[in-house]
Design a protein around this nucleic acid. Structure first.
Length: 750
DNA sequence: TTGTTTATTCTTTTT
DNA sequence: GAATAAACAA
């Protein structure tokens, strides 16, 4: 029973409009909710779950809810807990990938995997496919590794087994691909590893092969909910069907106009024909937008109206505003960045917090110009995406070392670090070792640990023995129950990784050391927040957590991200930059109508992020691939009626700095006299970034009391370096002595 | 075997 | 114009 007083019902405590409320209360079979941008999709979904728990007596752990990002999952869990007033720890809410990983870890024995299987990310996959191609002697000129992986991914997303595909091969080329697919899967299995797609497909295969396991999960998950349903792929839909087709307690929310992931296998048909599979499905349409003023919404509606393949609907808003959407033309990408940063500063002065603004672009490469301008003008910013922290070489090396302790069969990780730092084990020796491991039917790592490398000669042999004794020691430390952080510290010391970087003593090696420090910090924080969880859990999180998951609005930093990353977010002001043909839509999609429609949706997604003001811009020339290319405004822009926006032509205005930079641009580049490019500051992309503040660093002195988010208060013992390189040694009140980079430590001066 | 220089491809978008 | 691979020197 609800804890509310008699007469007032739980549903009344939820703030919902008529249709939202109907969707929440409906209890008669499958539901499909079309939730246009800004119509309260998250509100309905959280309300529905809360309602199930509060009014329909569902236990939280009987609900399976798939979201698109871990961040969305976390936020929804919190909102639900607030609504129902109890802890919802048991609730199965997360991305398809993390939910499936959870199931697979429990049931791995059913499909011949260890519970601690590795999860391979992009670069691991690339290494593995290269091994496959080498073994099959496929020339990587005739077939690019990336393309091959993409094809394999397509097979998996369509939930096709190797056997099913083998029958379809009708050319030499296709048979080669299938051979590669087969070997790739075998090597994954041998390495006790799965790639991202496997997490979903293996769960499906597991359920198909084990009816009793399926039955158990089907009974547990009395209700299945899916967010961002327009972006599910076939294997995800298969999974949903397996879980919910029998009992029909399924609730999906999405917006076909925001389907932007077909390149990842998403089937827009899943949402457009949901009611064909779940035939009694009731459809709800949320069309009132609570986010944007009419000017923005009319502009957005005009973008999307040209799409053919969409469900019929019309968004409307009651929010009024005199402000118009602004479309600006600039001379080049540099001017675009500078002028937009100027508008950002102007808006800030008019009271809009930086954190409430976002610059959205099609490709990650576009962020650079904006970063430079923002730094120059000392505006704080957060860059979401791009090369993420966990993709950095040194960080991946550390992860590989750790992975090998959890999963000794992980051959990709083993090969990665076998000779890093250099131990005299070169290509030739590695090839010999792989040969040996194949004939002896043991993993590379086991081979080395059992010292089965007699046939290897001199220098390499010494290296292998070194490696062997290092891991022997590490394995003992694991048995002693050392913490992940301690293990990594030992690895870095024993392997000589730290020494290698310290001896190098270059800007680059310094930044690598910083990143490693950052990883150690992250690991120790994680340890504290997740006591009782294992190293394997940390490693899983590291691969499954994306950049956007860690992102949080920060009051004093503007947000930079791709249009894809912006899905589901909202900002007072959005700048969509580079609205040009060849970029948005991408040149590569010219000639493919469905892709052109998809990118139109991407533009639409961007436009509907704005809660108050929207600006779009395009340039005449843009630097790409190191050369200057002429650009044309996007076909999408040209299709929008002129009365829906105000146009501003900035392409002829010059400023002093621009004229200067124009000159440097024209200066002939003589190799001999060109100054070396200054190295970019190594930065953790999630942190707000500022220009070199060496001029105004006055806040630390010896003996100064400071406070740190994790370690509490402490005293500055010594200071070395200055500006962005400043390092502080701090004695904390709990007795811990830590050396940290001033700019990363986020210390508060007391 | 290792570190450096040179050639080449590449940019969509990401769990 | 950067990241990677191949080619080459030590």
């Amino acid at each position: 029973m609800s804890s509310l007083t008699k007469g007032s019902r739980f549903i009344d405590s939820l703030v919902l409009n008529t249709i939202q409320r109907e969707a929440v209360e409906y209890d008669d079979g499958p539901q499909l909710v079309f939730a246009g941008a800004g119509t309260g999709k998250t509100r309905v979904l959280t309300a529905k779950i809360a309602y199930l728990i509060k009014e329909k007596q569902f236990f939280p752990n009987h609900i399976f809810a798939a979201t698109f990002t871990n961040k969305a999952a976390r936020e929804m869990r919190e909102r639900i807990e607030n609504l129902v007033g109890i802890s919802c720890k048991g609730l199965w809410i997360g991305t398809f990938h993390s939910l499936c990983a959870r199931i697979l870890r429990r049931e791995s024995h059913l499909i011949g995997f260890k519970p601690a299987f590795s999860i391979y990310d992009d670069s691991d996959q690339r290494s593995l496919i290269k091994k496959v191609m080498k073994e099959l002697q496929i020339d990587d000129r005739s077939m690019q590794p990336k393309k091959l992986l993409h094809t394999i991914s397509k097979f998996k997303n369509a939930c096709l087994t190797v056997n099913e595909i083998e029958q379809r091969a009708d050319s030499y080329y296709q048979r080669e691909i299938i051979k590669a697919y087969v070997l790739y899967q075998k090597m994954l299995k041998d390495a006790d590893a799965m790639d991202f797609d496997d997490l979903i497909t293996n769960t499906v295969f597991l359920f198909r092969k084990n009816p009793s396991a399926l039955e158990a999960y089907r009974r547990q998950f009395g209700y299945v909910l899916v967010d961002e349903y327009q972006d599910t792929n076939t294997s995800q839909f298969e999974l949903i069907k397996l879980l919910a087709y029998a009992h029909k307690r399924i609730f999906v929310v999405g917006d076909d106009d925001q389907s932007i992931y077909s390149w990842r296998g998403a089937q827009i048909e899943n949402i457009l024909s949901f009611d064909k599979i779940f035939s009694s499905a009731k459809v709800f349409k949320l069309e009132q937008n609570y986010r944007s003023p009419a000017s923005v919404l009319n502009f957005a509606n005009a973008i999307i109206k040209d799409n053919v393949n969409r469900a019929d609907k019309q968004l409307w808003t009651a929010i009024k505003s005199e402000k118009e959407v602004l479309v600006t033309r600039f001379r080049d990408d540099r001017q675009e960045a500078e002028k937009i940063v100027e508008s950002v500063i102007a808006r800030k002065q008019r009271g809009v917090a930086l954190g409430e603004m976002a610059i959205l672009f099609r490709t990650n490469a576009q962020s650079r110009q904006f970063e430079e301008s923002l730094r120059k003008k000392k505006v704080g910013y957060i860059l979401v995406g791009g090369t993420s922290f966990y993709e950095r070489k040194e960080v991946k090396d550390c992860i590989a070392y750790l992975r090998l302790l959890v999963n000794p069969k992980d051959s990709v990780s083993c090969e990665r670090i076998l000779n890093v730092p250099p131990r005299g084990i070169g290509n030739r020796s590695i090839e010999k070792l792989i040969e040996l491991s194949k004939t002896n039917q043991v993993s590379l790592f086991d081979l080395i640990m059992k010292k089965n490398f007699e046939s290897i000669s001199g220098r390499a042999k010494t290296g292998l023995e070194e490696f062997n004794s290092m891991y022997a020691l590490l394995i003992d430390l694991v048995k002693e129950g050392r913490s992940p952080e301690e293990l990594l510290e030992e690895i870095l010391a024993l392997s000589g990784y730290i020494d290698m970087l310290e001896n190098e003593d270059s800007e680059e090696s310094k930044s690598r050391l910083e990143n490693i420090n950052e990883l150690l910090n992250a690991l120790s924080i994680w340890q504290e927040e997740n006591s009782g969880r294992s190293l394997a859990d940390f490693l899983e999180e590291v691969t499954l957590v994306s950049d956007i998951d860690k992102w949080d609005k920060e009051k004093d930093a503007i947000n930079l991200m791709t249009l894809h990353a912006a899905k589901g977010l909202e900002f007072n002001t959005a700048f969509i930059v580079g609205v040009e043909d060849g970029l948005l839509p991408s040149r590569q999609n010219f000639g493919d109508d469905s892709k052109i429609e998809e990118e139109r949706r991407l533009f639409y997604v961007g436009a509907t992020r704005a809660m108050d003001h929207l600006e779009c811009s395009y340039v005449d020339t843009r630097r790409r691939f190191g050369s200057i290319l002429p650009m044309e405004p996007s076909r999408y822009l040209e299709a929008i009626p002129k009365e829906l926006y105000r146009f501003k032509d900035n392409s002829f205005s010059y400023t002093a700095t621009e004229r200067f930079s124009f000159k440097t641009e024209e200066r002939p580049k003589k190799r001999a006299f060109r100054e070396p490019r200054p190295k970019r500051e190594p930065v953790f992309s999630q942190e707000p970034q500022f220009d070199d503040f060496s001029q105004d660093t006055v806040q630390f002195r010896m003996g100064q009391m400071v406070s740190h988010a994790k370690y509490g208060t402490g005293k500055v013992l010594s200071i070395s370096g200055f500006g962005p390189d400043m390092q502080l040694t701090i004695l904390f009140n709990d007795g811990a002595r830590k050396k940290m980079m001033a700019k990363f430590a986020k210390l508060q001066v007391l």
